[in-house]
């Protein structure tokens, strides 16, 4: 491969040796790439600004056996607003950690690159919590794990549809995380571990899956559906992706101000 140019987003950055950093990059054309940025921790480094965490950047790399070497770089967008707010930092970390842990090295996934870029751009104005749910839903779809919401996932009850949101007294919609879709009442009764979801939550998930991200972030979603969707998507990702990102815990702690206070952090000791 020799020397190549790529548009990339920095997913992870780890100090290495005296002055280097090892980066995990998500590139538009080559997928996830591990690369070394030499001397980048020195103030005089020309590369330093181009390889900051979460940056959208254009790089020139030299392919190596295990690590590629970054030789030139120019940052397009650095998303400086992320460091101004812990909720946004937590959300951006969740996006990048999920992509890092759910994708294989050097597997081109240009649609996923576009999704991550759109999510980072939207983070400035959008609700980080809601954007997280939209990102998770679209990430599952892009990786081939899209939850099936049309018809019973068991497939032998033709014509059955999950009840629409807003219908009174329809009861919950049953969902099988293991099988990856909704269940008709008959199948739900015989399926162990079927999860009850409110029709409104299923409708929100369906809306997120079919609507472009920049429009979906404008949706107004009730708190109950938000909580249910967050819990559902995390269970789904943990089961099918076999990952439990550390950023989730941080994001939870940011929301749980009471927990931070008991840790002696938010409420200064008397």
């Amino acid at each position: 491969m020799g020397i190549y140019k790529e548009e990339a987003i920095v997913l992870r950055s780890m100090a290495y040796g005296e002055t280097d950093r090892i980066l995990t990059l998500f590139t538009r054309g080559a997928g996830k790439v591990a690369a070394i940025a030499k001397g980048v921790r020195k103030p005089s480094s020309r590369l330093r600004g181009a390889v900051q965490l979460f940056s959208h950047t254009h790089l020139v790399l030299y392919a190596g056996r295990t690590l590629d070497t970054i030789t030139q770089g120019d940052a397009d967008e650095t998303f400086g607003f992320i460091e101004q707010d812990l909720d946004r930092l937590a959300a951006a970390s969740c996006f990048t950690e999920l992509i890092d842990r759910l994708t294989m090295d050097k597997q081109p996934l240009p649609k996923l690159f576009q999704l991550l870029l759109a999510a980072l751009r939207s983070l400035e104005g959008a609700d980080p919590d809601l954007l997280g749910r939209i990102f998770e839903a679209k990430l599952l779809a892009a990786l081939g794990y899209q939850p099936q919401l049309d018809g019973c996932v068991m497939g032998h009850h033709d014509g059955w549809q999950a009840p629409a949101s807003g219908v009174v007294d329809v009861g919950p919609v049953w969902f099988s995380i293991e099988r990856g879709g909704v269940l008709c009442p008959d199948c739900a009764a015989s399926c162990s571990g079927a999860l009850p979801l409110s029709p409104a939550t299923v409708a929100v998930l369906a809306y997120f899956l079919r609507t472009p991200l920049d429009r979906a972030v404008r949706a107004r979603v009730e708190q109950r559906s938000r909580s249910e969707l967050a819990s559902f998507l995390r269970s789904f990702i943990t089961y099918h992706g076999d990952v439990r990102p550390r950023s989730w815990q941080f994001a939870g702690a940011c929301k749980d101000k009471a927990k931070l206070a008991t840790d002696g952090v938010l409420t200064p000791p008397a």
């Binding site: 815990q249 941080f250 840790d263 952090v265 938010l266």
Partner: peptide
């Protein structure tokens, strides 16, 4: 420093000690 990806949150740093000290 705070690093969600590395699982480092406020309670992992010497922040409570700083708050106590400056008061």
């Amino acid at each position: 420093v705070l690093s969600p990806i590395d699982g480092i949150g406020p309670s992992d740093l010497k922040i409570a000690e700083l708050l106590q000290r400056v008061q």
